[in-house]
């Protein structure tokens, strides 16, 4: 019924060939996250330059198509943003996944918004929301230099 919305081509494509699935050389921020219920895990790496702009973002880990696609799209579009912009985008994304009908952040281009909206299908699958959000929570944790592993709330 809604499977087509959940598994859109972009998700399947990113899930199959995730971008930035590697470890950034010379990263200066990182954090780990896991989903104890299903055993999914992610390790997010960020490299910020002198102006606090994300020069590179990457991740390692394994998970379902939704979680891999989400991390892939996230690490792609966060490059070139500063911490403030990145955090606003995270807020915007999490808000959209929870309840908002659309994305509002001025730091996202139309193209980026379209890509992220492909993940909005999980709204109808409450058990899968955490798959889409784990890497995002983990990235915030990396910015904040939290050493504690992120656990997805249910």
């Amino acid at each position: 019924m809604n499977l087509k919305e959940l598994y859109q081509e972009i998700i399947l494509e990113h899930g199959k060939n995730p971008r930035n699935l590697r470890k950034t050389e010379g990263f200066n921020k990182d954090a780990k996250g896991n989903n104890p219920l299903c055993g999914d895990n992610v390790h997010v790496y960020l490299k910020l330059n002198g102006q606090k702009i994300v020069e590179d973002a990457s991740f390692e880990g394994s998970g379902c198509a939704i979680s891999m696609a989400s991390a892939s799209i996230m690490t792609d579009l966060i490059k070139g943003k500063n911490e403030h912009e990145a955090k606003e985008i995270v807020e915007d994304f999490l808000g959209m996944i929870k309840e908002n009908p659309e994305l509002k952040s001025k730091y996202l281009s139309e193209d980026e918004k379209t890509k992220l909206m492909c993940l909005s299908g999980v709204k109808q699958y409450p058990m899968r929301v955490k798959c889409a959000t784990l890497s995002w929570h983990t990235m915030v944790s990396a910015f904040e230099e939290n050493t504690e592993e992120v656990k997805t709330e249910n």
Binding site: G15, D40, G63, C64, A65, I66, M127, R128
Partner: peptide, 10 residues
Amino acid sequence: GVHPHDIATI
């Protein structure tokens, strides 16, 4: 090529 969670959802 398909993660078990995706299998279960489908």
